[in-house]
Amino acid sequence: MRLTYPTALVLQALLDGHHHGFDIMDATGLPSGTVYPILRRLDAEGCVRSRWEKDGVARKEQRPPRRYYELTTGGKTIALDAKTRTQAMAEAGKRLLRPAESES
């Protein structure tokens, strides 16, 4: 699977409990035009599963139902894996940047 940086962010957001498209956008800071295609791709690859909100919830709040995304078991593994990898990368990046920062 192609794991781009935005994909990793979306996976992270899902792991952190954000389940709606717009919530994921808020959590990651990515625009809707990036988040949605990623969700569709993850869906097609079996990493996430989507379902509609229970009618009752929406009716209680007097709004239309929202689509609800959650990680599958496989998706969770990939997300956790991605998290470790991005963290490792972030560490490596920090180590690389530090000498440069001290020089300036």
């Binding site: 809707s32 035009g33 990036t34 569709r40």
Partner: peptide
């Protein structure tokens, strides 16, 4: 946000 729907 809505404009992103085009990309989608």
């Amino acid at each position: 946000h809505a404009l992103g729907s085009f990309v989608d």
